[in-house]
């Protein structure tokens, strides 16, 4: 199973990016290989529909589970339709978020917990 974590940087000590659609990177763990891969999120530069674009990218990469902070309605619709499990409320570093997931501390979500465009221009560093 492939698990994607929204991240501010491209290493496992990077902080989890609370924004799904506009996060800078995804840390992807392939559980069968026990190996991390880091990808830039193409949705970060989208004019509109960032969450949709980001979700499409994860679908294309055959991701089955997402750990993140907040997900908007369009992104959630895509993730749900694709059968991708979404765990929200992840925090700390990528490594810590993965631990939280393994210990069952994250919430499985099926509805959006962010409003449209929430990730735009906010929380940028």
């Amino acid at each position: 199973m492939k698990i994607a974590i929204s991240a501010e940087g491209n290493n496992i000590e990077a902080r989890v990016d609370a924004r799904f659609g506009r996060c800078e990177y995804f840390a992807i763990m392939s559980e069968d290989k026990e190996q991390w891969e880091f990808i830039s999120n193409p949705g970060v530069s989208a004019g509109g529909g960032a969450g949709i674009h980001t979700a499409q990218e994860l679908v294309n990469r055959k991701v089955e589970c997402v750990l993140t902070g907040r997900v908007g309605p369009n992104a959630m619709a895509v993730l749900q339709a694709a059968g991708i499990k979404v765990y929200t409320g992840a925090s700390g570093t990528v490594r810590e978020a993965f631990e939280q997931y393994k210990n069952g501390l994250l919430t499985l979500s099926t509805t959006a917990n962010a409003s449209p465009h929430e990730g735009t221009g906010k929380g940028r560093k």
């Binding site: 979700a55 679908v59 339709a81």
Partner: peptide, 26 residues
């Protein structure tokens, strides 16, 4: 094949295995 989602500059289409979602408002 995902071609439509790829060329849509507004991300109004999403291609999933076996389904296509459209976000017509975009």
């Amino acid at each position: 094949c995902g071609r439509c989602a790829e060329i849509c500059a507004f991300h109004a289409l999403v291609v999933l295995p076996g389904n296509v979602l459209s976000f017509v408002e975009l």
